[in-house]
Design a protein around this nucleic acid. Sequence first.
RNA 1: GCGCCUGUAGCUCAUCUGGAUAGAGCAACAGCCUUCUAAGCUGUGGGUAACAGGUUCGAAUCCUGUCAGGCGCGCCA
Length: 589
Amino acid sequence: MIGSIRLCSTSCTHEHLSLERILIRFYVTLQMYTMKSYLVPILRNAVIAFCKTSNIEAIPEVSIETPRNPEHGDVSTTVAMVLAKSMRKNPRDIAYELVEMMRSMIDIDVITDISVAGAGFINIRFAKHIYGERLREALHAGAAWGRNTTGHERRVNVEYVSANPTGLLHVGHGRNAAIGDTIANILEWNGYAVTREYYFNNAGSQMANLGRSVYMRYLQLWDSSIEFGKDEPGLYHGDYVKDIARVVAERYADTLKEPTEENLRICRKIGEEWCFEAIRKTMQAMNIRHDVYFNEDSLYTEGKIEEVIALLRSRGLVYEKDGALWLALSRMGLSDDRVIVKSSGEPTYRLPDIAYHYDKLVRRKFDMVVDVFGADHIATIPDVIAAVEALGADRSKIRVVIHQFVTLMKDGEQVKMSKRTGKNYTLDDLLQEFGADVTRFFFLMRGVSTHLEFDLNLAAEQSEKNPVFYLQYAHARIASILRTAEERGVHIQEHAETTLLTHPTEIDLIKCILRFPEVVERAAELLEPQGIAEFLRELAAVFHKFYHDCRILGEEEKLMQARFGLVKAAKQVLNNGLRILGITAPEKM
RNA sequence: GCGCCUGUAGCUCAUCUGGAUAGAGCAACAGCCUUCUAAGCUGUGGGUAACAGGUUCGAAUCCUGUCAGGCGCGCCA
């Protein structure tokens, strides 16, 4: 089993361009401009001209935002207020001057209104037909709408889950998995060449503990009077260890009863294989597929550990004390030195971690490395980064995503986890009970840095209360409309006059659809999936409102066709967004 | 003791890296289905954004301090 793990070498790259990717590129470059990008140069020119006449050196960045309140225009800018600060001048006066300058530059067919409001906001309104035209672009891009090329095919390695093969995945791993997998998706949508990686930690003392645990359970099969690890620390108490022991017994009968090194090694090996298989199955149930399982073992067998020690030594960054090898972190700007090779000769976890990151950055030359960790790993990160940097890697290429813990709630009470008895709620339990869609969404709907409350009652709810269904229902509803149209023999045209869409809810829906590319881009900047989930909730809400306000079937032909175009685009965006989150978009519910 | 995360409506969370009147869902109450899926929509009530200062035209957002909760601080991973 373990033999099937693809070991990583320098050859595992993603340099080929798939046909899909070429098509995506094609569509992305087809997008003419966003409304904001139409406006930015105009605004910037006005600001530059203004600064010149006012003798201002520092020209501020112009930013354009979408006001919360639609009465404040389609977009607005605060640049006049920013300028007011350095000029010590009334922001409204500046705003008026800027507006005057911009008036001569804008196309009145595109921008219908530009005005000063409030403390010095400049509010801008677009002609309605612009929305219809841009909607056509969204429709044309289809499954590629939301993709961009800002990643320039740069190679990025996203490492997630990376649980030790010493047991079953628990709920916290589930959050890690959902976040990591979705970040990988987000980066792909932003034009990065992504490698999904699992650091398979199969070399440390935890593995020895698993071996001992399995062996003890194995002995118990033949002699029930043996007590399980009464005063032995570090043993694994979960029932799955008994399952593994039974596998050992099936294969070796009672021939391992002598407590030899070799027999322990066998138990360890079978335990590792069993756990790996279990983890792989759990990942599969969550629709996650890693490209690379990186074996920690390989760092030893391929001499990478030795190489890193030699490198550190040559730079005078290690020293020996009390029979151990210390990493001189105090010479790298950190406060405490740490042991990297114990006096027993075994490395501590820090050393392989450093070698692993060295491998990713220097040997495999990834342009970016994303580590997704739970909050409990936070302490070692600065050490690893400092060491890898000392070895010549660029620390800015490392992005660490730390997610906080998950609390399971049932009937308003916290579900307690017990490490001792091993009676945990596993990730498998969640997936089995709620399915991959609900499980993934619940992990993604909160910001990564906040503590997540997973409400088991809410997840079990097969009703409108469950937020996943709200999104999926919007998708299914659209599918249903299109189906009904087909059943009634209504022909849906390829090209519709989308500029006929002028109803307020129609415009709201278009605006939402057009916002999607920005949402995807921002999610990549922040390495934060939540924005996508939040966006989809809004999109679904606007669609449901549209569904309530506007009919499609039975409307006058041209309007009906335009609305078909609108809901097709909405369906596509729901689909794209759900795909990023790794959640299915059902045609029927 | 030190480091990181969090504190926003009764509950769970948003608030687009400092903008205009802080928004959703759930819970409560009141409405909307002979018409494309009511797993939907509309309305009402609900706030000293933990607290105290500071920075400026402007703070839930940035800084300092205090309080509360979570996670770490090993020759464990």
